[in-house]
C-alpha cells in the first residue's frame, strides 16, 4: 500500500461501520450508528458528549465494539486491536496531533512506519513526507516538542503518512493550536486528500472543518441525526443551529 494519486481516490477501500453499539463500563454510548468513509473528508460533528470521540475510538479499535460490524474494503476489521488496525491501512491521528515530544522528528516519523518492515519502503515514504512538508527537512534531529504548533501538526500528519494508510481517522487535530493556525492546519489535511487518502474527521471547530468537508454526519446522544453533503446540510438551518450552533 503506497500513497496514491488523486485518480485512485474512487477505488480506495471504503471503511464501512454498520450498526455500531458500544460504550464504557456497561454504560451504552452509541446506540447503533452506521457511517462510512467517503472520498475526501468525511466530517463527524456533534455537541460534547454526543459520542463522536467514542465512535472514532471504536473505528480504530481503542474501544471494543459491543455489536455491529466494521469492514474495510473486503476485510472484516471489527475486532482488531489498534496496533492491528494500523497494519490494515487505517491510521489514527491522536487528539491535538499527539507527537512524541521527547523524541526527534525523525524518530516520530520512524514510529509512523513501525508496522513497515521493508527499509526501502520506509525511505521512500520518508522522502514523500519531506516533499509534502519541506519545512521538516531541517528539523529532523530536533525534539518534536521544540517545534511550533503548526510544525508539530506536520509531524503528526507526516507520521501518519509513514504508515502507508489509505484512510485516516482524526480526533480534533486542531485541538491546542492557536486559532490563527487552525486554517493552516486544515490546509495541511488537503495535502493528504490530494494524495488520494480518505479522512474521517472529528472536529469541534465546525466552521473551519466545513470548509473542507465532502460529507457530513451529525451525531447527538449516541444516534445519527443527519447525513449528507455540505449543501444538503446547508438547507437544514434548524439542524445547523440545534447541533452546531451556527445561525
Amino acid at each position: 500500500m503506497t500513497l496514491q494519486t488523486n485518480a485512485d481516490a474512487e477505488t480506495q477501500p471504503v471503511l464501512v461501520a454498520e450498526d455500531i453499539v458500544t460504550g464504557y463500563d456497561g454504560h451504552e454510548v452509541l446506540h447503533g450508528v452506521s457511517i462510512q468513509s467517503h472520498p475526501g473528508v468525511t466530517c463527524i460533528f456533534g455537541p460534547n458528549g454526543s459520542g463522536k470521540s467514542t465512535l472514532l475510538k471504536s473505528l480504530n479499535g481503542v474501544v471494543p465494539v459491543w455489536s455491529g460490524s466494521i469492514q474495510y474494503g473486503d476485510t472484516e476489521v471489527t475486532d482488531l486491536s489498534p496496533d492491528e488496525m494500523v497494519g490494515s491501512g487505517i491510521a489514527t491521528l491522536p487528539q491535538g496531533g499527539g507527537v512524541f515530544g521527547t523524541m526527534t522528528v525523525a524518530e516520530n516519523l520512524s514510529l509512523g512506519a513501525f508496522t513497515v518492515d521493508d527499509p526501502t519502503v520506509v525511505e521512500e515514504r520518508k522522502a514523500e513526507v519531506l516533499e509534502a512538508f519541506p519545512a521538516l527537512e531541517d528539523k529532523l534531529d530536533a525534539k518534536a516538542k521544540s517545534l511550533s504548533g503548526g510544525q508539530q501538526m506536520m509531524v503528526s500528519l507526516g507520521r501518519a503518512m509513514m504508515t502507508g494508510a489509505d484512510t485516516y481517522l482524526m480526533d480534533e487535530p486542531s485541538a491546542g493550536l492557536a486559532p490563527t493556525l487552525v486554517d493552516d492546519a486544515f490546509d495541511l489535511l488537503e495535502t493528504l486528500v490530494d494524495r488520494g487518502a480518505r479522512i474521517i474527521l472529528i472536529e469541534q471547530n465546525v466552521v473551519a472543518a466545513l470548509r473542507l468537508a465532502d460529507y457530513i454526519y451529525i451525531l447527538a446522544e449516541g444516534d445519527l441525526q443527519f447525513e449528507g453533503t455540505p449543501s444538503e446540510l446547508g438547507q437544514q438551518e434548524d439542524l445547523m443551529e440545534l447541533y452546531l450552533g451556527i445561525e
Binding site: V62, S81, D83, V86, P94, F100, S110, F114, T115
Partner: peptide, 17 residues
C-alpha cells in the same frame, strides 16, 4: 523506539501499531 514511545504515551504508541 517502541519502548520509549510506550513510556511517553501508551495510547498514542498503540496507534502507531
Amino acid at each position: 523506539l517502541a519502548i520509549r514511545a510506550i513510556a511517553e504515551d501508551r495510547t498514542d504508541a498503540r496507534l502507531m501499531g
